[in-house]
């Protein structure tokens, strides 16, 4: 039940577009949404179309690779939704669900305001717990400067909160950012540089450390 021709055309367009131009629409929509004051009450209603994967409490699903969104930085949520919608961040699973007929630019602002205000759920997915000391060392050396001592992120610079995120999601996205060949070409240049030398073991250790990191917002 697929549409190979359309997929081929879209893929062709994506390849044809120069990377800098690809950032344009996403950045423009991001900035337009950020200029609006998000309304969490309206955001709760607009978020209904997201709940089927990200859950009513924003917890996502550890087993499915759906990220935890509750308590995330609002600016980060807006940026990522705009990136996915534009195709700059490639998420074939999510892309059809955030189409402009379903989610307006204003909805991006409202949804982000709603999710940012939710409590971070407990019970997120963890790793095997065997390399937490190594994870902490790496995190404090390479990551904390931007992502914060408590993994809280930095909304002003679009740096995501990482504490309490699902382990498998952190591993998958970190690996994709490191690869810079496909899904995460939207990643920040400093992030790409910082993670370039990481081994799979390094990524696993830091991800497990962060998944277990409980912190105040």
């Amino acid at each position: 039940m697929t549409r190979p021709l359309l997929a081929t055309l879209l893929f062709g367009l994506a390849l044809a577009a120069p990377p800098l131009d690809a950032a344009g629409p996403a950045a423009a929509e991001r900035d337009a949404a950020l200029a609006m004051a998000g309304d969490p009450v309206k955001g709760k209603a607009a978020y209904r179309v997201c709940r089927g994967c990200h859950q009513a409490d924003g917890a996502g699903r550890a087993d499915a690779g759906y990220p935890q969104l509750a308590g995330q930085q609002a600016t980060v949520l807006v940026k990522q939704m705009a990136d996915v919608r534009s195709g700059r961040r490639q998420s074939p699973a999510m892309h059809p669900f955030i189409n402009p007929d379903e989610v307006s630019t204003r909805d991006l602002a409202d949804i982000a305001a709603y999710l940012a205000g939710l409590p971070v759920p407990a019970g997120n997915g963890k790793g095997d717990g065997r390399h937490l000391a190594r994870g902490r060392t790496l995190y404090e050396r390479d990551c904390a400067t931007c992502h914060g001592r408590a993994g809280e992120g930095d909304g002003a610079r679009f740096v995501p909160r990482l504490a309490g995120q699902h382990y498998r999601y952190l591993v998958r996205e970190s690996t994709a950012i490191r690869a810079q060949a496909g899904a995460r070409r939207d990643a920040d240049a400093d992030m790409v540089r910082a993670i370039a030398p990481y081994t799979a073991g390094d990524i696993a250790a830091v991800s497990d450390y962060l998944a277990r990191f409980r912190s105040a917002r």
Binding site: A45, R48, V49, C50, R51, G52, C53, A56, R61, D63, A64, G65, Y66, P92, A93, F97
Partner: peptide, 25 residues
């Protein structure tokens, strides 16, 4: 729960837990 492997979201996300729908679905 959907079918995460197939990219299928849970139906209740939009159609509500008891399938009653809403003004939007």
């Amino acid at each position: 729960n959907g079918n995460p492997a197939g990219g299928v979201p849970a139906c209740d996300g939009c159609h509500e837990t008891r399938g009653e729908g809403s003004d939007r679905f």
